[in-house]
Structure formats: structure tokens, C-alpha cells
Design a binder for these strands. Structure first.
Length: 384
DNA sequence: TAGGCGTGGAC
DNA sequence: TGTCCAAGCCT
């Protein structure tokens, strides 16, 4: 750390009552912490899995996924030996699917390079796929008791208020400011509880809007509270609005009653997940022609879109799909055309067999509508 | 550095 | 209904 950075940090910390703050925070956490599944063990693998699942994902959403996942993959060995497709199936609906791919890859590395034991140095942990600065700090402090910062959105919100830090938390570089602060104030007698307590405080008390300062165990330490500006922190630049895509979706049933599904590419949006063939289009008029061309070009399947059976939209963090789903008349398949491009990424399956393949939520809704025969599907619903 | 990358809950 | 956002990471 340069001398200038040191001086900046001294400004931030100032005459802060570190020991009293630690006592107040830890006392509160020991009494008020939630009983969560991943808190029943300090096994580094279990902590690791929970931290990956919790990235940008709510606790209530994660719990059932975590329980199912740990029952099926209780150890590094079990997960490393599983097929990626099955891991995806356990991740289906949780989102950010590269987390599952990276976790599976990293667990294989731990098995092979470290004999199945999660490494306990910052360099080795951070080198694992999908493990960034936050997750590395969480594993090292919670599982191994090391005094490493674990700075997530909660921690930045809490500390931005306590120390009145006005840097934009949307900037990657800002995280380092908070890591430096944590290194100054972390309780070395219990780094695990200290880090978890900061996050728990952010989740339960020091929430984004209308923080519950009246119930806050460290309100007396809070500079934002003192000045009445807690609602204005943290500073965060607004995200850009995502674009909208119209997509025509093809439901093609062969004479034997099987439907065509497609496995998405290995990278990018919804990588490796299954879906019904679809193509970007402008309006309904263009959709039928585009679908017909796409089906032959990509799959060698000749078909004609007929009834528009379902319309629904799906909102991603950076993109919105408006999906127009057509039942298509199957008119044969040209083995010379298209098939080579997709190889084993296309399959003809029965409706029941679709349960065996991981689908994204937007296409899972189409599977469900197929089950119901599209009785109630001819209406728009936003992201539901 | 900024944008890609999912989903569902809260207000 | 729209908007924000929740225990981030990768490129």
C-alpha cells in the first residue's frame, strides 16, 4: 500500500472505536443470526457451494437448491465424478448457469490437484474457476478462520454508511477500498463471525431502502446515521436498460410423436441449456418465414409454422425476450443439411422425456404448456 | 472498465 | 407496472 493510500484510509477510519464496534457486532450476530443450512458445518466444500449459489441470489431462493444439491453431491468427490449435464439439472431455474459449469470444473481440479481438500491460501482458492475476491475471502474466513475480507454488496452498503464512503459501488475498483477498511477493522479473534455479521446486518437491518436503524446494534458507530444520510448511501450508478428481442419459437412434432429440442452453445446466454428451436424475428408476419428458414438451415428440418399457440415474455438482467411460439407441421428431414452444424445438440424426445433435460425458465414454461395442451397459454405474462 | 450473464421478490 | 436488486465473476 502506498503512503497516499495509507493516509486516505486513516481519514476513513479516523477515530473509529474498532474494538467496541467488533463487540457490538459480534454480540448481535451470536444472538440474532439466522439458522441457515450452510451454517451447520464448517466444511470448506459446503461453504464453497453455498457461496457460489448465493452469488446475486436470495437466501430463500437458494435454500431448497442447496439442500437438494448437497444431498446428491455431499463431497468434492461426488460432484467431481458427476456428469456436467446432471449438475445442470440440479441448477435448473437458479440462473447464472456458468456458476454450475465453473464449480464443476473447479471441484475436479480440487480433487485432482489437492486430493479433494479445498486449498486454504488466498492464491490457490482465488485461482479456482468461478471463485473471485469475495468468494475466496468467504471460504478462507468462514471455513478456515483466516482474517481475509469478504466484501459483497451487503458489506459495501453497511460500510459505506458506517464510514460515510461515497464512492460508486458499481465500479470494480471500489471493492478494494472496502477490503482495505475491513482489514483494518476485522476481529482477528473470529474473522468468520465478523464477516458473516457484516453480511447478516446488511441482509436484515442495514437494507437498501428504509434501513432499520432503530434495531441496529452498531447505530452508535454510524456516520451516515449521525448525519441522517443513510438513505442516500451507498452511491451506485444506475444500470442501463436492456434491449428487447422478438423471437419465433418452433414446436415440431415428428410422426413418431417426438418433439425437436436443441442444446444451446457452450458459451453465452443460457449456455448448454436445452430449448425449443427459435430465431429472432421482427413481427408475427415475418416470424413464420424466419422460423421455416431457420429450421431447415440449422437442423435440416422441413416444416411450416401453423397455429400461434403461446406468447410470453421473459426478462433477463440485460435483455428481454418476447417469445412467439408456433406449432409447426413436420414435412421431413434432410440429413445432408443442417444436422452437421448442430451434431448431438439436437434431439427428438417425448414430452415426458423433456423432464430429463435442463431447460431455461422461459422454455420450461413452454414445456409446461405442452403438458397442459396450451389451454391457458394464449395470453401475455411478464417474466412469470 | 463496462457489459454479459438469470431469476424471482419486494415495494 | 416498473424498477431495483440479492452473499459476483468473467472477459
Amino acid at each position: 500500500m502506498t503512503r497516499k493510500q495509507q493516509e486516505q484510509q486513516n481519514d476513513i477510519i479516523g477515530s473509529f472505536a474498532i474494538e467496541t464496534f467488533q463487540d457490538d457486532l459480534l454480540y448481535w450476530f451470536e444472538r440474532q443470526q439466522r439458522d441457515l443450512p450452510w451454517r451447520q458445518s464448517r466444511d470448506a466444500y459446503r461453504i464453497w457451494v453455498s457461496e457460489i449459489m448465493l452469488q446475486q441470489t436470495r437466501v430463500d431462493t437458494v435454500i431448497p437448491y442447496y439442500e437438494r444439491f448437497m444431498e446428491r453431491f455431499p463431497t468434492v468427490e461426488k460432484l467431481a465424478d458427476a456428469e456436467l449435464e446432471e449438475v445442470y439439472k440440479y441448477w435448473e431455474g437458479l440462473g447464472y448457469y456458468s456458476r454450475a459449469r465453473n464449480l464443476h470444473s473447479a471441484v475436479k481440479e480440487v480433487k485432482e490437484r489437492y486430493g479433494g481438500t479445498v486449498p486454504d491460501t488466498p492464491e490457490d482458492v482465488h485461482a479456482l474457476k468461478g471463485v473471485g475476491p469475495y468468494t475466496a475471502g468467504a471460504i478462507l474466513s468462514i471455513a478456515y478462520g483466516l482474517p481475509e475480507p469478504a466484501v459483497d454488496g451487503n458489506v459495501m452498503r453497511v460500510l459505506s454508511r458506517i464510514f460515510l464512503i461515497e464512492e460508486d459501488i458499481a465500479k470494480v475498483s471500489t471493492r478494494k477500498v472496502f477490503e482495505a477498511v475491513v482489514r483494518r477493522i476485522i476481529a482477528h479473534r473470529n474473522p468468520s463471525f465478523f464477516n458473516q455479521a457484516l453480511m447478516e446486518l446488511g441482509a436484515l437491518i442495514c437494507i437498501p431502502r428504509s434501513p432499520r436503524c432503530g434495531s441496529c446494534p452498531v447505530a452508535s458507530h454510524c456516520r451516515a446515521r449521525e448525519q441522517g444520510v443513510q438513505e442516500a448511501l451507498p452511491v451506485k450508478k444506475k444500470a442501463k436498460q436492456g434491449r428487447v428481442e422478438e423471437r419465433g419459437v418452433a414446436l415440431v412434432r415428428r410422426e413418431d410423436g417426438r418433439w425437436l429440442i436443441h442444446k444451446r452453445p457452450e458459451s453465452g446466454l443460457l449456455a448448454n441449456l436445452w430449448e425449443f428451436p427459435n430465431v429472432e424475428c421482427q413481427g408475427e408476419a415475418e416470424a413464420r418465414e424466419k422460423i421455416s428458414m431457420h429450421m431447415y438451415g440449422a437442423f435440416g428440418v422441413k416444416c411450416t409454422p401453423q397455429d400461434l399457440v403461446m406468447e410470453h415474455s421473459h426478462v433477463f438482467s440485460h435483455l428481454q425476450w418476447n417469445l412467439h411460439t408456433y406449432i409447426c407441421r413436420y414435412e421431413g428431414q434432410d440429413g445432408e443439411q443442417g444436422e452437421a452444424a448442430v451434431k448431438d445438440r439436437m434431439l427428438w424426445v417425448t414430452i415426458d422425456e423433456m423432464e430429463n433435460y435442463p431447460f431455461s425458465v422461459s422454455h420450461k414454461k413452454i414445456v409446461e404448456a405442452l403438458h397442459e395442451g396450451f389451454q391457458q397459454s394464449l395470453s401475455w405474462s411478464s417474466g412469470q
